[in-house]
Nucleic acid binder design. Sequence first.
RNA 1: UCGCGGGUAGUUCAACUGGUAGAACACCGGACUUUGAAUCCGGGGGUUGCAGGUUCGAAUCCUGCCCCGCGAGCCA
Length: 588
Amino acid sequence: MTSADPTPSDSHPTRDSAGTPADPQPGSDGHSASDIVRDKVRQDTASNRFGGRVQTRFPPEPNGHLHIGHAKSIGLNFAIADEFGGTCNLRFDDTNPETEEQEFIDSIEADLAWLGYQPSGETKYASDYFDQLYTWAEQLILKGLAYVDDQDSDTISSQRGGFGQPGVESPFRDRSTDENLQLFRGMRDGRFDDGEKVLRAKIDMQSENMQLRDPILYRIRRLAHHRSGERWIIYPTYDWAHGQSDAIEGVTHSLCTLEFSDHRPLYDWFLEHVDYPHDKPEQTEFARLALTYTVLSKRKLAAIVAGGTVDGWDDPRMPTLSGLRRRGYPPAAIRAFIDHIGVARTNSINDIELLESFVRTDLNAAALRRMAVLRPLKVTITNWPEGQATSVEAINNPGDEGAGTRMVPFSGELVIEQDDFKLEPPPKYYRLTLGREVRLRAGYYITATDVATDADGTVTEVFVTYDPESDGGSTPDGRKVKSTIHWVSSSTATTGTVHLYDRLFTDPHPGAEDGDPLELLNPNSRETLTDCRLEPALADVTAGQVVQFERLGYFAADLDDPTTFHRTVGLRDEWANIQKRRTQQRPS
RNA sequence: UCGCGGGUAGUUCAACUGGUAGAACACCGGACUUUGAAUCCGGGGGUUGCAGGUUCGAAUCCUGCCCCGCGAGCCA
């Protein structure tokens, strides 16, 4: 998105080793995918337009933090450059000193690097072109194509007219070139107050395209700019700066989101009337990203942060890149997702589950398996040799032999998941229940023989016997069990905090209704468990590392406190589906 | 109200520009399994927004209509 609406947060310069641009080539026959953007670029290179050159750019305004929506634009721009042997540069569209700050520049650059993209060349800034833009503006005045308007904002706005109604020409529209020039220089030199005058393009107040009704090029703003400081008090608007900045940088394909479609004629008009002898870039629009159960607008995200529902811009529930990073989303999964959803002009909403499936696919291959018990239930092996402690060998990743194995302490005092024992098992429940034998992952077969309960009848402890011959998880007689459950040995376990996350919103389309999306916030989007038992190897995970808690999901060690884990995404859960189906079929 | 852009399985996208509408995710079933995971195999799903027209043949071309999105900042 040319400049969607990012928003504030802090940056955590954590990263994987990435550094590579998108992994393209989804096409079936070796050719890159076919879509509105690629078709156009392919056509242009075929006709040798731009001398066969392809250059794109990612042009965020440094007024907020990047989110997953920006990732679509980033991925597209870099992928196009990569697939066509071109380049993609980073330019900050910093034409409005009111909202822009260095902090956001730093955060955006860090997020971009984390995502795995390396812009070509130096970072560019629209503010570096202020001199050139000014010169071109005077040229427009000289050509009689721009004029200084003395009217205030409200007047200009009302004169613009409405949809289906013509606009009214400003009484200052036909000033002499000379007067315009003097006035414009006066604007630049501080002879007028903020808002007192603007420079407008003289195009067509009757145009059915509102963007062409004498758009504003310059406004007076006595504000320090984060880069140009106090040097300027007039600042170019987006429309005046953007296309020219593209041209200056040699951009060939200027990709932006659909809401700029109406600006394209203006984009072209400026390029046509400015003395710019080189190839003129062409703007192409595509639909911005929308996700179910998510909002992606700066205003709404800011409201969520301000409302205190989340801890900040990098809260793991936030769709910001910094939030997804803390959540444990691998950059490669985000890139694969972006690559997969494609680009079109259709307004569409992607299912957040699709993103999650890419996260699972990535993590399944990469994450080490570990055991953690989130809601502990005490298990005592009654025939275990008194006081004896041993350890069992467990595989670190069944899909990757190279990940090796580790030793996990084992004893007669364990904890298992509360959900893994039922006094009265529902149908198709395969896990532990009285009289049933199950396998402890990488450990032994156990059979439940008795329980202890509290006054309410809640099971507080399960007594089991184990089969000494089932060491390592299989028996000489080869008998099968229906279920394998995870466990942690009590005496060697460490205690940790685990955050479980649910959707941030209760509604799949929180932005769709007219009402305040904040009213649709899920009050239970985070569940914090503070008494989780972790196997000793979990003490070795580093900040930001994502591991799989076997049978539970993928969990990321917090960036600041590695004893705290965030559930990145759960595993697919067939048992949960079975239960859901049952409750749906038999509404009580 | 005017302009622009859209409408193809539940969802996101394809369909070599007029020639049997496909894929991914989701869902269902089976195999395998020391994760009810992963993996493998199979399955259900479509009046291509609606109605006409042109054509041997229409998602594709024509006409009319319906629905959705964006646009009237000195924001980007």
